[in-house]
Simulated scan of single mutants.
Amino acid sequence: MEKSLATFLGFGAVLLWSVLALLTVGSDPVPPFQLSAMAFAIGGAVGLAFTHRGGRMRSTLTSTPPIVWALGVGGLFGYHALYFFALRMAPAAEAGLIAYLWPLLIVLFSGLLPNERLRPLHIIGALISFAGAGLIVARGGAGFEWAYAPGYALAVLCALTWSGYSVLSRKFSEVPTEIVTFFCFATSVLSVIAHLLFEETVTPSGVMTWVSIIGLGAGPVGAAFYLWDVGVKKGDIQLLGTASYAAPLLSTCVLIVAGITQATVVILLAAVLIAVGAGLAALGSRKSSSRT
């Protein structure tokens, strides 16, 4: 697969994540781990249909090294578990901003990969885009307080988990994307266990709630992870990392269109910063490719 096509598919994951907030709101009052269990089960089922049709189910299961299983399940379940607990132990705005360090960390960590070169424009672009995302994620936040240090620490681990999963996945680019199917099922099982330990079961009621849950499983918590796997393994990982900061902006725009939030000057400024940052990262990638 060509690098440009893989990068384009990776962008598809970012677009799907833009409706994550809307569908999560629609799934209320289902608790986080229960919602994760249901959505990942649907996401696994989506992948299973393609894996079974391709006749590669058995070979994918038997040929995948244990370390890849640990990386995949740890990345998907670990990220969500740490994120949920971080939001419980610290204010959502501040914890969310810290957790959203993962695109910047992807850009920085990618420089350690073979055949990858981290240029100054990648770093500058990622920092500018992070500033734009920060305006959105932390708007209305009360500021950082040491009383919430445990929650902040979990948010840092959350960012490290997803960035580590994304970058290290590139080292196993020969592993077919179909394996994400079974990462989703394993994450669903672990989410069920966490749900039984920490939450009370809520039976979804209403068409909108069920549509939101199915939509999550088919899109942001389903197809997005397959597209992301292709992108980070075969595409321009630095550009994808920076472009990922568009997710909170697009998510906010979706909420505006849905009438859940209002458009503000802050959002406009964030859009400019994210666009400038992504443009600089793209320019850095173009210069890198022109010199190879």
Rank of each mutant, 00 (worst) to 15 (best):
N115E: 13
A270N: 03
A243L: 14
P150V: 10
A275Q: 08
W228V: 01
Y226K: 06
A270Q: 02
T252C: 02
A95C: 08
V257S: 07
A194P: 09
A138G: 06
A258R: 06
Y79N: 07
V266N: 02
W102E: 07
T177K: 04
V19W: 00
M89T: 08
A99V: 10
I124N: 05
S18T: 02
F50H: 00
F144I: 12
Q34A: 11
P248H: 07
G217T: 12
G125L: 10
L280Q: 09
H122S: 09
L20Q: 01
F40N: 00
W146N: 06
R291T: 15
L190A: 14
G72K: 07
L71C: 07
L118I: 14
F11W: 04
P248I: 08
G75P: 11
F109G: 13
V276P: 02
E200M: 06
I136C: 13
E200Y: 04
V156E: 03
V265D: 10
H195Q: 11
T242R: 02
E2K: 13
L108K: 11
L48K: 00
A270W: 01
V192C: 06
N115Q: 12
A138V: 08
A218G: 14
L250I: 05
I260T: 07
V137G: 03
L269H: 04
H122M: 10
V254A: 06
G132V: 07
C184I: 03
Y148L: 03
L280D: 02
V167N: 00
L5W: 08
S4K: 13
A258V: 03
A81T: 11
P29F: 15
L76S: 02
A278S: 11
D229Y: 09
L16Y: 01
V46D: 00
G96W: 09
L268W: 15
E200I: 05
L105S: 09
R56W: 01
L154S: 12
I136H: 07
S163I: 08
A246Y: 00
T264L: 05
A95Y: 11
V180K: 00
P103Y: 14
L216F: 07
S166V: 04
T64V: 07
L255Y: 08
G279W: 06
F185T: 10
T242F: 06
L255I: 10
G44E: 02
G134A: 15
C253T: 03
E116L: 06
S173V: 10
G72F: 03
G125D: 09
L160S: 01
G96E: 08
A246F: 09
A258Y: 09
P29N: 15
G10C: 01
E116D: 07
P31C: 14
G279V: 11
I274F: 00
T64W: 05
T24L: 13
V230F: 09
R56N: 01
F182G: 03
T242V: 14
A155V: 14
A95T: 07
I256W: 02
V276C: 11
A247P: 00
L160N: 05
G43N: 01
F185K: 12
Y100L: 14
T51Q: 01
L87F: 12
T261V: 12
Y226T: 00
A86D: 15
E199H: 00
I136Y: 15
L104S: 12
G10D: 00
G279Y: 12
V202P: 15
G141F: 09
Q34I: 10
R286C: 13
K171V: 10
T201Y: 15
